[in-house]
Simulated scan of single mutants.
Amino acid sequence: MPIYTKGGDKGSTSLYDGQRVKKDSLRVETYGTFDELNANVSLADKMCISTENKAILQKVEYKMFFLQGEIATLNTDTFLENSVTITDEDVHFLESIIDRYTAKLPKVKSFILPGSSLAGAQLHICRTVCRRAERQFVRFSSTEKVRPVLERYINRLSDFFYIMARSEDYEDYLRQITEEVIKQYKGKSGVN
């Protein structure tokens, strides 16, 4: 069975509830940007050094499918009845990660460049795509009814990606120091 339906050949697409809209609608642009973000999050999770960070990012990737699904539905009640949704618990999860990582990472005393590690740089890409998606969501929510919990969740996401980027940069810094200490130890002791 082919993956193409030809239904969009004239510039429209089907939403989650089966209704059709123009592909350039703000709704499609908004959930499409969150889809772009989720693909970037998937890439970031493959680059992470920390297994904990990988697991956290995978949990967020999963939740983003439900965020996109809700935005991609004209009849939100149908979506809420038939799918998992973003809840205040999801907002609290992001806040708990932000708070815990902020407490354990070195304090930032100046402007930082976006990513000193590969994973950190990719997570900063996630942060910037998230901010673009949030701006689109704000425009979208000015004309469409959205649940307030979605606004809170989306608002926490860019801060979440920022702190995850800092975490991966710090993990990479610790790895480099460890490698340098081992290298110097081996050089002084003659161990190979």
Rank of each mutant, 00 (worst) to 15 (best):
A103Y: 05
H124M: 11
R100N: 13
Q122H: 06
A119Y: 04
A121D: 04
Q122K: 13
K107T: 14
D99S: 07
V129C: 05
R132N: 07
H124L: 09
Q122L: 09
S116M: 01
S96C: 01
P114A: 10
C126R: 12
L118G: 07
T128I: 05
L105S: 07
G120A: 01
G120W: 06
A119K: 07
A103K: 11
I125C: 14
H124R: 12
K104T: 13
P114G: 10
P114V: 02
V108F: 05
Y101E: 15
R100V: 00
S117G: 04
D99P: 01
G120M: 08
T102L: 05
R100P: 00
R127L: 08
K109G: 09
H124A: 06
D99I: 03
A103V: 00
T102Q: 12
I112P: 04
K109M: 11
K104Y: 02
K104C: 13
I112A: 04
S116K: 14
L113Y: 07
I112N: 06
H124W: 03
C130H: 03
S117I: 01
K104G: 00
I97Y: 06
D99F: 03
R132Y: 13
Q122R: 15
T102F: 11
P106A: 05
D99M: 01
L113C: 09
Y101P: 00
L113M: 14
P106W: 03
S110D: 06
S116D: 14
L123M: 11
I98V: 12
I125V: 15
R127T: 03
K104M: 14
T102R: 13
S96P: 05
P106V: 04
S117H: 03
F111M: 07
I125Y: 14
I112Y: 11
A119G: 01
L113A: 11
K107A: 15
L118K: 15
V129I: 15
S117F: 01
S96D: 15
R132C: 02
A121V: 08
R127Q: 13
K107N: 09
I98T: 04
G115A: 06
A103Q: 12
F111P: 03
V129D: 07
K107G: 13
R131H: 02
Q122E: 14
T102C: 05
A121M: 06
I98H: 10
L118E: 15
Y101W: 06
S96F: 04
Q122M: 14
I98A: 02
R100I: 01
P106F: 10
P114E: 03
R131W: 10
L123G: 08
F111I: 06
P114Q: 07
R127M: 11
C130F: 01
V129A: 08
S116E: 15
L105F: 06
S96N: 15
L105W: 03
S116I: 11
D99E: 14
I97W: 02
V129N: 02
T128R: 05
H124E: 12
K107Y: 12
L105R: 08
T102W: 10
R132K: 14
G115K: 06
T128W: 14
S110L: 08
A119T: 04
R100H: 09
T128P: 08
R132S: 09
A103L: 10
C126H: 07
C130A: 15
R131K: 14
L123I: 02
